[in-house]
Simulated scan of single mutants.
Amino acid sequence: MGHGLPHTLRDAGLDFLAFGLKQAQACLFAGLFFLSVFLVPKAGWAGIPRYDLLLVIALGIQAVMVWTKLETWDELKAISLFHVVGFALEVFKTSSHIQSWSYPDPGFTKVLGVPLFSGFMYAAVGSYIIQAWRLLDLRILHHPPYWMATLLACAIYANFFTHHFIGDYRWYLAACTLGLYARATVVFTPRQRPLRMPLLLSFVLIGFFIWLAENISTFMGIWKYPNQMGAWTTVHVSKWSSWSLLVIMTFTIVTHLKHVKARVHVPE
C-alpha cells in the first residue's frame, strides 16, 4: 500500500502531461493561426492588408497539414464544410440588419463585409476535433442515434439565425442536449491506459477555450462587438454557451466521417 499511492500519482501526472502535450498538438492549426494574429501587424505588411495576410497564412497552414498527411482529403472536405457554415453565419451576423459584430479593417478579400479568413476560425474547431480523435484514440460510448444528433445540430445552427426574429431558444436546446447526451462518454488514451470523461463536459471545456480565444481576437482588433468600439471589454460570458453549442454542431459533422463513425457506439 505504501508504494501504491506514489505510483498512482506518478501515473496520473504522466497521463496529465501526455494529455496536455497531445491537446497542444491537436491545436496545431488553431495555434499557428492565432499566433499569426499576434504577429501580423494591424496595418498589414508590404501594402497587403492584415485580413488578406491572415487568409494566405491560413491557406498555407491547411495546405501543409494535408501535404504532410496530418489531415486526409476526407477530413479536409469536412473542414471545408465548417468554413462554409461559419462564413455564412459571419455574413448574416455582420449584415446591416443584424450588426452583431463587425470587421473594421480594410481588405481585398472581404465578401459582403466579411474577410474570407474568418471561416477558418470555425474550421480550426473542426481541425482540433479531428486531430484530437486521432492523437488520443478517441471512442464514444452511448452516443445518441445519428438522426437525433443531426436534428439537434441543425436546430442549434438555425437558432443562431432565427433568435434575432423569433426569440433565443439556446437554453431549450441546451436542455435537449443534456437529455440526449446524458449517458455519452468519451474514452481517450493519453499514454497507455484509457481514461473517461462525460462527453458533455468536453463540449463545455472546448467552448470555454474558444471563448478565451475570442477575447484575445477581439483584443487584437480582428473583429469587434458594438460595445468594444470605444474601448475593449471582455466578451460577455454568455458567448461561452454559444461556443459550446457550436462545438456540438461541429462534433456531429465530424462523427459522420467514415473512420470516425467506426469509433462511435450507438446503443441499439
Rank of each mutant, 00 (worst) to 15 (best):
Leu245Gln: 14
Glu75Cys: 13
Val85Glu: 06
Pro190His: 07
Trp232Met: 13
Met65Asp: 09
Ile206Asp: 07
Arg134Gly: 10
Lys224Ser: 09
Glu90His: 06
Gln25Gly: 14
Asp105Tyr: 12
Ser36Glu: 09
Val37Gly: 02
Val85Met: 01
His3Leu: 02
Pro104Tyr: 15
Gly47Thr: 02
Leu205Phe: 12
Ile156Cys: 03
Gln228Pro: 02
His164Leu: 07
Pro198Val: 11
Gly13Asn: 09
Asp11Leu: 02
Trp147Asn: 14
Lys261Arg: 11
Leu205His: 02
Arg183Pro: 04
Leu205Arg: 13
Ile57Cys: 05
Ile130Thr: 10
Thr252Lys: 14
Pro49Ile: 07
Leu39Glu: 09
Ala24Asp: 12
Gly86Lys: 03
Ile129His: 03
Val204Gly: 10
Tyr122Val: 15
Phe38Pro: 01
Thr177Arg: 03
Leu35Gln: 07
Ala175Cys: 07
His164Asn: 06
Leu81Cys: 04
Thr250Asp: 02
Ala231His: 13
Ser95Tyr: 05
Cys176Gly: 10
Leu32Asp: 01
Trp147Pro: 12
Lys22Phe: 06
Ser202Pro: 10
His83Pro: 00
Ala58Lys: 05
Ile48His: 04
Asp168Ala: 06
Phe203Arg: 03
Ile61Gly: 00
Ala174Leu: 11
Gly60Ile: 08
Leu112Tyr: 10
Leu195Met: 14
Thr94Trp: 04
Ile61Gln: 09
Ile57Thr: 13
Ser241Met: 06
His256Tyr: 09
Leu9Lys: 03
Asn227Ser: 14
Met148Glu: 10
Leu245Asp: 13
Thr250Phe: 09
Gly113Ile: 04
Tyr181Pro: 04
Met220Gly: 06
Ile61Ala: 11
Gly126His: 12
Lys261Glu: 02
Pro144Ser: 13
Ser102Asn: 11
Asn215Val: 14
Pro144Ala: 14
Thr8Gln: 04
Pro6Trp: 07
Asp137Gln: 14
Ala149Glu: 03
Tyr225Lys: 10
Leu212Met: 01
Gln25Asp: 05
Arg183Glu: 08
Val125Met: 12
Tyr157Lys: 12
Pro106Ala: 13
Leu245Ala: 09
Ala184Gln: 03
Arg10Met: 11
Gly44Pro: 09
Ser244Glu: 10
Gly119Asn: 10
Pro115Asp: 07
Leu246Asp: 10
Asn215Cys: 07
Gly207His: 08
Gly44Ser: 05
Trp211Pro: 03
Arg139Glu: 00
Phe87Met: 05
Asp15Met: 02
Val247Thr: 12
Ile248Phe: 01
Asp168Arg: 07
Phe208Leu: 11
Tyr103Ala: 00
Phe208Trp: 12
Thr252Val: 09
Ser242Lys: 06
Arg10His: 09
Phe33Arg: 06
Tyr146Lys: 06
Ala43Ser: 14
Leu21Glu: 06
Leu21Arg: 03
Asp74Arg: 13
Pro145Trp: 04
Phe34Cys: 11
Arg50Cys: 02
Gly179His: 06
Arg50His: 01
Trp67Gly: 14
Ala262Leu: 15
Leu32Lys: 00
Ser118Arg: 04
Leu76Thr: 14
Ser238Thr: 15
Leu246Lys: 02
His143Lys: 01
Val125Ser: 02
Ala12Cys: 04
Thr177Leu: 15
Leu135Gly: 15
Leu180Pro: 08
Leu136Asp: 00
Leu200Tyr: 08
Thr255Pro: 04
Met1Gly: 03
Ile210Val: 13
Phe208Cys: 13
